[in-house]
Every structure is written in C-alpha cells, then in structure tokens.
C-alpha cells in the first residue's frame, strides 16, 4: 500500500495536468485522477510489467475520462465552457498563446492525447500506442498529422505577428 502511494505520488501531478486537457472542469479532472489511482491499486494484479507503469496509468486515465464523457464520446471541445476552461486557468502568463490550447481546438481527442503523450510526457510511439489501445502505425500516422497541423498553426501565427509587428 505504502509503495503504491509513493508511486502514485510520483505520477499524480503529471496525470492531473494531462486530465485537465481531457475534462470539462477541474473537479472532473480531480475525480478522474482519484478513480484512476484507485482502479490501478485495485487491479494491480493485472499490471503487465512489460509496460511502463506510467503507460498503464495513462491508459486507465484515458478510459476513465472517456467514461465520464458518456457512451457517445463527446469531443472535449464540445463540453467545455470557454470561461471556465480548467486548462486556460492553469496556464501561466506568457506572451504567446499556449500551443496546447490551439492543439485542443484543432485536433481530435485521440490525436491530441497522442501528441500530449509524445511531446509533454516524452513517451515512445510504442508506449503511446499501448496507452491509446491503437496500433503503432496508427500512432505514427496521427502524430505526423498532428505535427503538420500544429506546424501550420505555428507558422501562421508567426506570419501574423510579423505582419502586425
């Protein structure tokens, strides 16, 4: 129990940051985090040591967040109230707009999750495919698509700022 608590403590902040991008409110993200850790503890016997522990945790978290959205899997963007967006509230002040906010607007939930796990969590393609329960080729293709979309967005923003500046 204590070992698990220590392990959970090591991962929970990163998990919560990820869940903020997948839940409609801060309270929802906290609830999903709690449920994820309890589920991981209860079903610890089903953990496959060939996986990274964090990959397994993210997989449970993604499922729990999807469960909260209901069986129709409504896209996060459709649920969120712009004024009370938990992600916006947690973003530290910066001169430029946070690219993850744009990513969430431009990418679908799964591609967004793949991009987050790759670039925010530094996960390998194999781990991402396990966490999302997708094939490695699906993950590679969608990471590339996500990159292309965000690259275009980044270049577009740079062009605009040059034009105004």
């Amino acid at each position: 129990m204590d070992a698990f608590t220590d392990l959970a403590r090591h991962h929970r902040e990163r998990l919560l940051r990820f869940l903020l991008t997948r839940c409609a409110s801060f309270a929802d993200a906290e609830d999903v985090l709690q449920d994820t850790l309890i589920a991981a503890y209860r079903y610890i016997h089903s953990y496959d040591p060939r996986w990274r522990f964090s990959t397994w945790l993210y997989r449970i978290a993604i499922r729990n967040a999807a469960k909260l959205r209901g069986p129709d899997h409504v896209q996060i963007g459709d649920l969120r109230d712009e004024d009370n967006d938990p992600l916006q509230k947690c973003i530290a002040w910066s001169e430029s707009e946070n690219l993850w906010v744009n990513a969430r607007r431009l990418l679908n939930d799964e591609v967004f999750a793949a991009m987050w796990l790759r670039y925010a969590e530094d996960m390998s393609v194999k781990d991402i495919s396990q966490a999302l329960d997708r094939s490695v080729s699906w993950t590679k293709v969608n990471l590339m698509r996500g990159r292309r979309v965000l690259d275009a967005e980044l270049n577009d923003a740079a062009t605009k700022s040059e034009a105004y500046g």
Binding site: L20, C90, N98, W100, Y119
Partner: peptide
C-alpha cells in the same frame, strides 16, 4: 510543445 506543457501549472 514541451515548454507550453510545462507552463500548465497544476
């Protein structure tokens, strides 16, 4: 992307 993820303060 990495820097912006780090900016999300939780």
């Amino acid at each position: 992307l990495r820097d912006d993820a780090a900016c999300i303060d939780v």
